[in-house]
Amino acid sequence: MTTTAHIKAVVMGGSAGSIASLITIVRELPAAFEPSVFLTVHVPPSEKRNVLVDVLRSHCDIAIGEAEDKQPIQPGTLYVAPSDYHLLVESSGVLSLSSDEPVLFSRPSIDVLFESAADAYGEALVGIVLSGASSDGAHGSRAIQDAGGAVMVEDPLSAYASVMPLATLNACPGARVGSPGQIATYLKHL
């Protein structure tokens, strides 16, 4: 699977045990990284602001912020789904939030983000699924693959929780597999 399309966006999803992997990945992204990056991590709904944004900001060189409704999408920026809302990408180049029911007990849901991004970006999209203990992300990754995009998962053998990467691998047998370091290298060379 060699991608010839110019990658415009990266979507990432993670749950239990994914924060350390995420830090490893975002730390490696150069300030000149071009694709837009969207991130959904399962966090408890009680937080008023997603503290993950502050944690990641201290580790990354690219612009980062909590995703806002109808915010225009910029290249080289990392958008983090707020807690208790789904994050969706619109084909018109803006973000949308929704308070639809949780999916697989999660809001934000990785599937919801990935499916909307697959529609918006088609083959110009990469999906990354990290450690987690649910099967969220599997459907969405399949949608990315079906639309011609690429999928990579954190190695289930070394991930803190293997359920999520395994579920994605089941749905997308052709997906790449690697450690957080290898995922970072892959993204840097898109």
Binding site: L88, V89, S92, S96, S98, D100, E115, S116, D119, A120
Partner: peptide, 9 residues
């Protein structure tokens, strides 16, 4: 309405 949401529903 927001296209991505309506499409999903």
């Amino acid at each position: 309405y927001s296209k991505a949401s309506i499409k999903r529903r």
